[in-house]
Amino acid sequence: MLLELQQDFRRHLLREQAVSLSNAVLADGLSAQARLQVYRNHVTLSLREALRTTFPVTQRLVGEEFFAGMARQFIAAHPPLSPCLSEFGGAFPDFIAAFPPAAMLPYLPDVARLEWALNEAWHSGIEPALEAASLAVTDPEAAAASTLELQPSLRLLTSAWPVEMIWRANQSGQDGSGIDLAAGGCDLLIWREGDDAVFRSVAPEAAAMVRGLQADGVLHSAFALAGAAEALGLLLANGLIVGRRAVAPA
């Protein structure tokens, strides 16, 4: 009984299908519909507000009204799975990519991916960084077979579009102009630094190395690339390497 009522309530709130709760709800001098609408307003508006908080640049690019319509459809298709709203919206970038009215803005999903990565990074902890000196090795074989562990906040975004420039042009105080899509793509490293989430663009070699490290952590598979030493230096200098372990010989 209670379960059916809650399922009907959910269908009504998310407009999944038309369900009549009129028999279940007393009118009490005001229509059941008007009473239910209070709950529906809150669910829709509060979840949209959560998305706006996580995806401010995405909203600025498309405007409030378009964002509201897109968010409403996303919320119905992908309602939150957790009561922690900072974890809500991970599926939004892919949803945007498949959302026909946004197809004319091919860079939009990557802007949303950057915003999601910043959100995730900000909510990640910071592990004590590995000192550069402890990476200095005397045994080359051991060095090659090491695995490196990265900060839990570290994310990598590779985009065919200048999302870094787009993001910057849409911060408060900027008017969003001066972006030419012909500027091309970028590789961005995103992580948490102190109380902030930060990102910076890196060379493709560094991105490839980080991708390799994220895949299996093993240094040599990530490292057979020119310019990788510089990338390693970047990770070290920003405290993004938190551990190193020797791999047991196969």
Binding site: Q59, R60, L61, V62, G63, E64, E65, F66, F67, P101, A102, M104, L105, Y107, L108, I166, A169, N170, D175, G176, S177, G178, I179, D180, L181
Partner: peptide
């Protein structure tokens, strides 16, 4: 869409 995307 009616936002800053029009300036890109």
């Amino acid at each position: 869409p009616k936002g800053t995307c029009e300036k890109i």
